[in-house]
């Protein structure tokens, strides 16, 4: 049986490879290395995992590039004209905590986690390519002057970030989609990526 499977897998890989080569270059999600650069490294593999999480709606919805938080997998603007406000937590009286508490509410389907709110405007990632997200993440002038250690802490220990793996149910009572990489694998990937010097494949 194993023999038989391999027989099919190899041509399948070839086929997929062919499709990838045929795909137009410079798509924001395309992280394959252009000719002339070193081959993918362990850091690049971690990078892929980390970026597939950071660009998932569970993360990107609160890293908008405008002043509007987003909702849903389609990333549409938050209903009721909710916006960033002065400090990233909404308007003075009607703010994030009017509806969002420090944990999910299964009765209402309203998500919640500690310090629910938007990332600072300088950390607006929506619409950016993976490489641009990574650059923004690492840029101390935009990331709140965070070094690697502080970034690792934010990415692997902040309960608001880790909420992405326990996103609860939506208003219709259906489970929200989680990011494409398991939490533990993601945490390991973050650490590995920084350990490798946080390379951004070009």
């Amino acid at each position: 049986m194993a023999q038989l499977k391999l027989k099919y897998i190899f041509p399948a890989l070839l086929l997929i490879g062919g499709l990838l080569l045929a795909a137009p270059p410079a798509s924001p999600l395309d992280t394959s290395a252009p000719d002339g650069l070193p081959p993918p490294t362990a850091g690049n593999d971690s990078y892929d995992k980390v970026m597939s999480v950071l660009t998932h709606p569970r993360c990107i919805n609160c890293h908008p590039s405008d002043h509007l938080p987003k909702q849903g997998l389609e990333g549409r603007p938050h209903h009721f004209g909710v916006a960033r406000g002065a400090a990233g937590h909404g308007f003075e009286a009607t703010n994030c905590n009017t509806c969002h508490q420090n944990e999910n509410n299964d009765y209402s389907g309203v998500p919640g986690a500690p310090h629910w709110g938007l990332a600072p405007a300088s950390m607006g990632w929506q619409g950016l390519s993976r490489a641009e997200v990574a650059e923004a993440l690492l840029d101390r002038s935009r990331n709140g002057n965070r070094g690697y250690e502080a970034l690792i802490h934010h990415l692997t220990e902040d309960p608001l970030v880790l909420w992405a793996w326990s996103p609860g149910v939506d208003a219709a009572g259906q489970p929200r989609e989680k990011p494409p990489v398991a939490k533990e694998a993601y945490i390991k990937a973050v650490k590995d990526w920084f350990a490798a010097g946080a390379p951004i494949p070009r």
Binding site: H79, F80, A93, T94, N95, N97, T98, C99, Q101, N105, Y107, S108, V110, A171
Partner: peptide, 19 residues
């Protein structure tokens, strides 16, 4: 927490208490 009919004050802050 969509319509606001249940808005109360918790420590002086507006809260929609159905959620």
């Amino acid at each position: 927490a969509a319509c606001g009919a249940c808005t109360i004050l918790v420590d002086g802050e507006a809260v929609r208490c159905c959620s």
